[in-house]
Design a protein around this nucleic acid. Structure first.
Lengths: 238, 238
DNA sequence: CAAACCATAGTTGTATGATAACATGGCAAC
DNA sequence: GTTGCCATGTTATCATACAACTATGGTTTG
């Protein structure tokens, strides 16, 4: 750990450089799991930066699970260090079967999310769902406003689960679904479709309002099956 | 009886709270891609912390790809296209409710995965599940070999769904859950627990073998409820 | 008039010192 | 031997200051 950082290097932030440097020490085995890192002050002087920069780097490594620290003791190398982020190749999603798989995954989560929402929703949640449905009601089927309101409804449902991880993932997927639908652009929906979709949404809202988890689950399942057909995916049993 | 504070119960760092809070604003759509975040000073005053803490939180969000910042301009919410699907912050996972949320997410996925597996499994899938169960049978409860075999069984189940995203996602989440459990400290298990767990697994395998989606779903749900109790989560309705 | 220039304020990046919270070991008192 | 106290070291947080950079508006200049 005798690397001195050059200030002339105007690329990333200093904390990023420090973090990668420590990360490299761990990866190369010069710092083993359980080892105690030098003190923040020591790291600051060896890297030639302020202790503040070192702290930002440590905070980042800690959030990644590479190290853990305790007040009054020090920072230590963690035993397991896997990447805490999951990414999906954006290009691969353009293929039909990949999209179908993602849609399936979304369905599994969203159905359960509806059940949780029925158990945990607040009045504010219900209000958000209602206003989203109202917006959908006044917008023409398939329009941008309609899609936006639709997204808003599903977002309100998953927000009512009080589960931030579900929220994070479902919102990601919803964005992708929306992009894909917009890209397809052939939404020549009939009034029939509009009323059907609205009816499905209303059933979901009713079940969540009543606090009936099973009914909410089933209603969401029906809605997703219908949505899959309307999008062009033929799903027998999602 | 004096009880030492568990790692899970100990309050996380302020920067973690701030980071989660901002993350939530983004997830809930109150901050949209391209939006500029409040200044560090403003965030510091609104959260009631020093600007230093805000900077640590921002450094982490930046490393996760959720925001980007430029000196002299400000910090902005990153575009959805290159944002990660899911980020699991190890530091945040020390909070009990975050762990519960992640466990919930895993449950929602795994239950549905069991149903898909029952419909799509091949003989090779069944063989993989069987050998995993056999390995679990000969290993002592809670040992490394037992944990490995357990993971192998669940991996075989999700592999049988023929959905690569579900596989990728579920394995990712399961590993994070497992890490968190291991980090919280080892719990000693009785032979009673071992036989109970094995029985649950056998029922899952039977249902999948029979091709009964509903039974597989229920068996997996029972297994996860049991696992939640064994881990110490009091979950009545996962 | 338009373009280049400059001045100024606002924002992020970094440095520094100080205080509080916590852990650990030594040492005295009992 | 055990308990309680104190000194020391470390992380966590705060507060302030300065440097680097950007945006913006006004001013000068061609």
């Amino acid at each position: 750990m005798t690397l001195k950082l050059d200030k002339v290097n105007r690329g990333p932030h200093l904390s990023t450089l420090v973090a990668s440097s420590i990360s490299r020490e761990i990866a190369q085995g010069r710092l083993n799991p359980g080892d105690q890192l030098p003190t923040e002050q020591a790291l600051a002087t060896t890297f030639g930066v302020s202790r503040n920069v070192v702290r930002e780097a440590i905070a980042r490594l800690r959030s990644e699970g590479r190290i853990w620290s305790q007040q009054g003791r020090g920072a230590f190398v963690a035993d397991v260090a896997n990447s805490p982020v999951l990414t999906i190749d954006h290009d691969a999603l353009q293929q039909a079967d990949a999209f179908k798989s993602l849609f399936e995954l979304r369905g599994a989560l969203e159905v359960k999310a509806a059940a949780f929402a029925a158990q945990r929703r607040t009045d504010a949640d219900l209000q958000a769902m209602k206003s989203a449905l109202a917006a959908m009601n006044t917008a023409p089927y398939g329009s941008v406003a309609w899609l936006k309101a639709d997204l808003e409804f599903h977002r309100a449902v998953v927000a009512a689960t009080r589960n931030s991880y579900m929220e994070q993932f479902l919102i990601f997927v919803s964005e992708r679904v929306r992009e894909s639908i917009l890209a397809a652009g052939n939404q020549q929906g009939s009034d029939d479709m509009a009323s059907t979709t609205l009816g499905e949404h209303n059933r979901i809202l009713d079940a969540i309002t009543a606090g009936d988890a099973n009914a909410a689950q089933e209603a969401m399942q029906l809605h997703l099956n219908g949505a899959a057909q309307r999008v062009g995916l033929h799903v027998n049993d999602l």
